[in-house]
């Protein structure tokens, strides 16, 4: 177990280094000159050249990357070119909003997905089952910006139940969380359904039923806990979906998280910020996957760590 963990951690670190190299290389070939961005529109060619020199943008790729990498080792993500603020501070200021949104999304997707999956499994083969599974497909097939705009239109503009975007109170959180959670809800309902069907087929459930226990008790006391665990273990893997989703959802709802930070930075070619957000996302994704893998055997003894 310890050996496995150490190996996986080392692997994860290598992957993160790889991610940082690939991203840095991509940004390196970007056809926009950060020095010119910083220098502003009244700058002379000399000023631009001077700034380029100061930022070390004339150095070869390897040298630039190595400098960045050494900074990372000290926990230094660099300073934003245009905001002139430590990237770490900028990300830290916005991370709580993004984490809150993800938490909301996890709650939404589990609540919707597990309920739908459970009902579908119990009503297996009926129209309810089919109907729910079509709904789950709709959730998987809906582009997030459309879901977001639709929810906004119906619940905020027309009905006025929720604010039209923004950040601050619980009611601000509802619509963006729902939007981000719909995709996951689609997947979870399908997983929950098959997991539940699996469990209901198990001998001990049949035995319990045969002993005359009420269906309600069997389902909720015996079957549900066993069916739900493998599904919940997948949450770690959601992080990847979320990290893509936040760029869209935060921009639709004006949510002040790292997704918006990244999008603004991309527009302005603020390379240190793009690097920072990409790395933070990659760290989250890798940790999420690691967590899912580590937790899996505790939940399902058939899985062994390799």
């Amino acid at each position: 177990m310890i050996g496995y963990l150490v190996r996986r951690l080392l692997q994860s670190i290598l992957i993160l280094i790889g991610v940082s190299i690939v991203t840095y290389a991509l940004l390196y070939v970007l056809p926009a000159d950060p020095a010119r961005q910083i220098a502003g529109r009244s700058a002379t060619a000399e000023t631009v050249a001077n700034i380029r020199e100061q930022l070390g943008l004339n150095d070869p790729f390897i040298v630039q990357y190595w400098r960045y990498f050494l900074g990372l080792l000290h926990g230094d993500f660099g300073r934003s070119y245009l905001q002139r603020t430590e990237v770490a501070d900028l990300v830290a200021a916005r991370l709580p909003a993004t984490l809150l949104l993800m938490l909301g999304a996890i709650v939404c997707e589990l609540a919707m997905g597990l309920t739908m999956g459970l009902v579908a499994a119990l009503r297996r083969g009926t129209n309810t089952d089919q109907g729910l599974m079509v709904v789950s497909f709709v959730g998987v097939s809906a582009p997030q910006f459309v879901t977001g705009l639709l929810l906004l239109y119906v619940f905020a503009v027309r009905l006025g139940w929720f604010p039209i975007g923004g950040y601050g109170t619980f009611s601000h959180l509802v619509l963006p969380s729902l939007t981000l959670g719909v995709l996951g809800a689609g997947w979870y309902s399908r997983m929950m359904r098959s997991s539940m069907i699996d469990v209901l087929r198990q001998d001990y459930i049949r035995t319990a039923r045969a002993k005359g226990l009420k269906r309600f008790v069997v389902v909720f006391r015996h079957a549900l806990p066993n069916a739900i665990l493998p599904v919940i273990a997948m949450i770690g893997i959601d992080i990847g979906l979320f990290m893509s989703g936040i760029v869209v959802v935060e921009s639709v709802f004006g949510w002040p998280g790292i997704g918006q930070l990244a999008w603004q930075a991309i527009q302005r070619v603020d390379i240190p910020i793009i690097m920072g957000v990409t790395l933070v996302s990659a760290i989250a994704i890798v940790l999420g996957n690691l967590l899912a893998d580590v937790v899996a055997p505790f939940i399902d003894p058939r899985i062994k760590l390799r």
Partner: peptide, 8 residues
């Protein structure tokens, strides 16, 4: 590649 946020 899996560790990249795909949209970014």
């Amino acid at each position: 590649m899996m560790a990249f946020p795909a949209l970014l």
